[in-house]
Simulated assay, not measured.
Amino acid sequence: MPKPKLIITNVGNTLWRKVFKTDPNHDSKRLWNEIKNKELEELCQISPEINSLTKFNLDGTEKLVFITTNTSDSIACGEAITEYYQDLGFSAEKIIIENLKNTKQKTEFEKGISEYVDTLINTITKYTYSHDKYINVTSGFRSLIPYATIIGTVFKCHIFYLYEFSTYLKLLPPFPIDLNTEIFREHDEFFQKLDNDLIEKEKAMKEFGGYENLQKLIPEILWEEDGMIYLTNFGRILWRKFDSENPLALISKDVEKALNKSDELRIFLRKFLRGEGESDHHLHTYNGKAKCWKFPAENWRIFYIEEPGQPIKVAQILKHDDYEKYIKEPRDETKLQYKPIRIKI
């Protein structure tokens, strides 16, 4: 059975300009009331977003995500287009890039680009195994296209666009490239910290064994400014790809012992991290702190703990007979000791 499609579309202000010209009162409800009764053919003439998605031949099963800049006209267009597709029965949502505004300040623009990169990656990785992924670069802020293209390439997404008044979409399939990300595995904790903060240059030099080795990563992955080191946008893309394909999990000592004894368990742990199976399986007699993940056609059960902003904790992986014994005793899996591990999925 084919996967449903995730389609991410950048939204510009063309729809507003076509309907209201230069009217500065950017109200999405006004725009929605203007377009909701228009014929599809007319909508395709005034909205590059609707036109390109129509040429894509949607069937109603797609997940649609519309990304707008933090400008009143783009937001109005994004809200009206989102409501249009929701009214048709689609699963559709709008995301605003808060830091991407009308500005000529370089630092503010770079903040906006970084937020766009993060948002696009987070959206893609959320649906990594459940959907086929498409990025629509027909419309929106033109400066975002190179970043969307790079991210699409790295994360194996289809990219498509409709050029001007062309009748046919240009569809670029995922590029078959594999990037060497061993640098991230070798310096895992360093890049985890760098993903959320800046790091002093001296600490970075110590991490990589001197200034000369650090310089090899500048300017492609890292950048130095005022004695501080941070990830470049391209470096962040590569790091997030590594992180999504090798998610960090915390495993108990029991799970560590079990994984060392059985390759089969690693297969089920990968399936679990990919979201296969049934989450939060209800147990009538269980008195513990963990949730239970079930694989319907298999005997394995995984007991796990989810905490906001933290790697998932895997407390136990048990076969049916062992798990029947396990749930009969009171448990507090939060008090177990856990060890970080990367699992390639």
Rank of each mutant, 00 (worst) to 15 (best):
G288S: 04
F165A: 13
G227L: 04
F165E: 15
E276C: 07
M205F: 08
P2Q: 14
Y163P: 12
N122T: 03
Y127V: 07
E278S: 08
A76D: 04
W223H: 13
D27Q: 11
L283S: 03
I327Q: 09
T71G: 11
N51F: 03
Q192T: 07
H158G: 00
N299I: 06
E83T: 15
L194I: 09
I50D: 08
Q45G: 15
T9Y: 00
I218K: 14
I135T: 08
I317T: 01
L222K: 07
W300M: 11
L169D: 03
D322V: 06
Y85Q: 08
I135E: 02
E264L: 13
D226R: 10
Q192W: 10
E276A: 09
Y147S: 10
T119V: 12
H131S: 09
P173D: 00
K193C: 09
K271P: 04
D132Q: 14
L171D: 06
S28H: 07
I97N: 00
T285R: 09
W16G: 03
E225G: 04
G209S: 01
Q337T: 12
N180T: 00
I317K: 01
N287P: 02
T68Y: 11
Y326V: 08
I199S: 02
A92G: 08
A92R: 05
F90P: 11
N33H: 10
L144T: 13
D132A: 10
K294G: 02
P340D: 04
I8L: 14
I218L: 12
E256Y: 12
E324W: 02
T153Q: 07
N233F: 03
W223M: 14
I97K: 00
K3P: 04
L169R: 06
